[in-house]
Nucleic acid binder design. Sequence first.
DNA 1: TTGACGTATCGGAAACTGTCGATATATTTG
DNA 2: CAAATATATCGACAGTTTCCGATACGTCAA
Lengths: 105, 105
Amino acid sequence: MAVKLRLTELEALAQAAECLRTLAHPHRLRMVQMLLQGRYAVGELAAACKLPTPMASEHLRLMQRCGFLTSEKEGRKVYYRVAEPHLKSILKCIEDRFGVTPASR
Amino acid sequence: MAVKLRLTELEALAQAAECLRTLAHPHRLRMVQMLLQGRYAVGELAAACKLPTPMASEHLRLMQRCGFLTSEKEGRKVYYRVAEPHLKSILKCIEDRFGVTPASR
DNA sequence: TTGACGTATCGGAAACTGTCGATATATTTG
DNA sequence: CAAATATATCGACAGTTTCCGATACGTCAA
């Protein structure tokens, strides 16, 4: 007699996979990690990742599209912040596994 | 004065991203979900995902390569099980966000 | 208006990924 | 031994992702 398994439906897993793929990039992880600790403009995030601004903008667009982030325009700057509350616990898991280093002390 | 941020080093984030990419596939998520609840042979996992066995084998190889799984050969079958303890909490986060449906009740 | 700044978008090249069919290996059975 | 079973690997193709340069857009200051 087979044991009954608790499984998520494949359709939901496909959605989850898409979100994970969006998260699965070193610069995007860094941006999320920053945004979980405050609100930042595109240029600030780009500088922190040592990326040209257009590429940072593109990464942010991807994360916004899957519901992770939202943006607010202020003057000529655009500030992003975390919109998906579960991001915090997911990043926590990742940090538990891969470590966290304070940037300066 | 800039607030000190708690950030993971980019190199570690690159490793994390690679692992997340490996996880970011509906069939692989399903397999991990099963393997967190027991030990399964390639054929059983393939059947549960409605995949040809060779493809299941390939997915399992990827997850083994990044340390998520280990395998034990028994006769002509190969049983896989979870090797990375953090997988459980990560899947928990994903299930919290995307829902879990018992396969049968 | 002009110019500078901050952000967004477009097009294309290179690299990577998922999938499939075919084949290979190892183990058990007859 | 040969045949059947279970898993693994290989080659190739289509599709996606990443990155970059160029360009476009919106806002502010002079």
